[in-house]
Design a protein around this nucleic acid. Structure first.
Length: 566
RNA sequence: UGGGGUGUAGCCAAGCGGUAAGGCAACGGGUUUUGAUCCCGUGAUUCGCAGGUUCGAAUCCUGCCACCCCAGCCA
């Protein structure tokens, strides 16, 4: 199902051309460089699949490199979570695990080299002053009064910075490029700042930390990266990337190429905003099944292969884009449809008593684990006089197209008998609480009479044998296609009904279900045991995704037409 | 506003001067003991717009328009 004859995207064309031209001696080396300041989300999956995928396809290698240059925001728990997510997605960095912090000493030496070449200087302007001196898009910047410090003075000051002799903010190291450049990134960008904060890996070994552009470019270089893929917002950083390579005694010459991120309808993908959802308690954590994080999707039961397939389908270009959620969901359904064993689960049980079935009767009927894959075998489900069916499968006054149970109507109980609704029992407030039915004993699945045409088929669970379990039903976290854009900010678009919990009645074989397994509850959706809430006495099932539902579509259409004609 | 990018169907996306792939969605139809799955069929006289070059332009040239990114001691 994955990657069959897809046209080559421009990145792969570029790599193929580079190999053909003999660049880097035909070597391909990439890297996936996350900052460990949060969890990976579905957007990162694209970068991971590209970085690791392209390397693999062209016989190259890919590093997992943590871009850990800002100790204030980074934590070990994030690096552990990121490793787990990359592995889960199906990629292996083997011995190619790196951190920008591994290179701190060498990066420092590169900085000294720039100072010695007169291409970097210690600036003692405050952050606010630096901002003011930078100018605007239309006005060139002003040169700092410290820009022409002597090389020995710069060297001494930088050394003192490293020794911790200054407070945060007192000085920074800047590249000496061009304060009048139309590219803001070239107006003497900051290379190092003082941060007296322990680093998650290097502890208090350093109190000066390199900035992204400097650290990232030279980490690529030191590691031997040949192809450095990143997203579009770094496009105008490329001249700076090249400036570093041009002005330092480098051994390697990596090349940066940019592609566009993707946006997904009904979701947000900014780490900062996802962190807010977590911090403000709108969700249960980074791995809440409603989150677009890889850990959230994993917990919810999304197969890694489905995510890889999705990434392959959306392609890679430099265009801004907003992908329909359905594109992702289709991949999940395709994967699960092919692989998930079928089971019966009644989410909102309605009791049905089959009046002409013996009180103490009990039959174990055979049900296929997969209707299109006989090799997956079958299981037995108990049938008794009292069963549950889905509340939605009965309507007292159904519309014409309704194919399920109605008063006086017949329906087939899947793998069992044809039953007829004889009586509807309601409570004091008029709600249907029970159905009294009769069954036709000659219509058991497999019997000749079972061939009889019946309007519909519904799933069911024997009341006496039913496993009562909590099932969590998820819906999209946001109710608008582009929550980032609407008025009131993204929080105003949170879907209040994104989580619903029901007390479901499940067929007894599900007692053995364990985390990591995925089932289709027939006519309903795909479900998986929550790995975090699983114990000897408890299984909570999470709905990964619903089945596609053309009946719901018809209903929605009817509602719209009714509303329009009023 | 200076710089950097991008415009092909509802959403993605091939195309690389020789006459508009494919996927998703949508809509029809068929099979079906899951309103699932599966199968079959239906969309661009036109590629942001306007000119030009050419026998021939989505592809080349010129101008215009729209949208995105950049003024962290974040990445």
């Amino acid at each position: 199902m994955e990657t069959e004859n897809r046209p080559q995207d421009f990145l792969r064309q570029l790599v193929a051309a580079d190999i053909a031209a003999g660049k880097h001696g035909g070597r391909v080396q990439t890297r996936f460089p996350p900052e460990p300041n949060g969890f990976l989300h579905i957007g990162h999956a694209k970068a991971i699949c590209l970085d690791f995928g392209i390397a693999e396809e062209f016989g190259g290698t890919c590093y997992l490199r943590f871009d850990d240059t800002n100790p204030e925001k980074e934590e070990v728990r994030y690096v552990e979570a990121i490793k787990e997510d990359v592995r889960w997605l199906g990629f292996d960095w083997e011995d190619r695990l790196a951190h920008a912090s591994d290179y701190f000493e060498q990066l420092h030496d590169y900085a000294v080299h720039l100072i010695e070449a007169g291409k970097a200087y210690v600036d003692s302007l405050s952050a606010a002053e630096i901002r003011a001196y930078r100018g605007t898009f239309t006005k060139p910047g002003l040169e700092s009064p410290y820009r022409d410090r002597s090389i020995p003075e710069n060297l001494e000051l930088f050394a003192a910075m490293r020794r911790g002799e200054f407070e945060e903010g007192e000085h920074v190291l800047r590249a000496r490029i061009d304060m009048a450049s139309p590219n803001m990134n070239l107006r003497d960008p900051t290379l190092y700042r003082i941060r007296k904060v322990p680093h998650q890996r290097t502890g208090d070994a350093w109190c000066i930390y390199p900035m992204y552009d400097f650290a990232h470019t030279l980490s690529d270089e030191l590691e031997g990266t040949t192809h450095s893929f990143c997203t579009l917002e770094f496009e105008d950083h490329r001249p700076l990337y090249e400036w570093f390579l041009d002005n330092l005694p480098v051994r390697n010459r990596p090349k940066q190429t940019e592609f566009s991120r993707f946006n997904l309808m009904f979701t947000i993908m900014s780490k900062r905003k996802l962190a807010r959802l977590v911090d403000e308690g709108h969700v249960d954590g980074w791995d809440d099944p409603r989150m677009p994080t890889l850990s959230g999707m994993r917990r919810r039961g999304y197969p890694a292969a489905a995510i890889r397939e999705f990434v392959g389908r959306i392609g890679v270009t430099k265009k801004d884009n907003l992908i329909e959620l359905g594109a992702l969901e289709t991949c999940v359904r395709e994967n699960l449809n092919a692989s998930a064993p079928r089971r019966f689960g009644v989410l909102r049980p309605l009791k049905v008593v089959i009046e002409n079935y013996p009180e103490d009767g009990e039959e174990w009927l055979t049900a296929a684990n997969h209707p299109n894959r006989p090799e997956m075998g079958s299981r037995r489900v108990p049938f008794t006089r009292e069963i549950y069916i889905e509340r939605d499968d009965f309507m007292e006054n159904p519309p014409r197209k309704f194919r399920r149970l109605r008063p006086g109507g017949e329906v087939r109980l899947r793998y069992a008998y044809i039953v007829k609704c004889e009586e509807v029992i309601k409570d004091a407030s008029g709600d249907v609480v029970e159905l009294r039915c009769s069954y036709d004993p000659l219509t058991r699945s497999g019997m000749e009479q079972a061939q009889r045409k019946v309007k519909g088929t519904v799933h069911w669970v024997s009341a006496r044998h039913a496993l009562r379990r909590e099932v969590r039903l998820y819906d999209r976290l946001f109710s608008t296609p582009n929550p980032d854009q609407g008025p009131g900010g993204f929080l105003a678009h949170l879907n209040p009904d994104s989580l619903e919990s029901v007390d479901a009645a499940l067929e007894p074989s599900l007692a053995e279900a364990s985390p990591g397994e995925r089932y289709q509850f027939e006519r309903s959706g795909y479900f998986t045991p929550d790995p975090f809430l699983h114990s000897a006495g408890r299984t909570v099932f999470l709905r990964t995704i619903t089945l596609s539902d053309s009946w719901a579509k018809i209903e929605r259409q009817a509602m719209r037409e009714a509303a329009a004609s009023k």
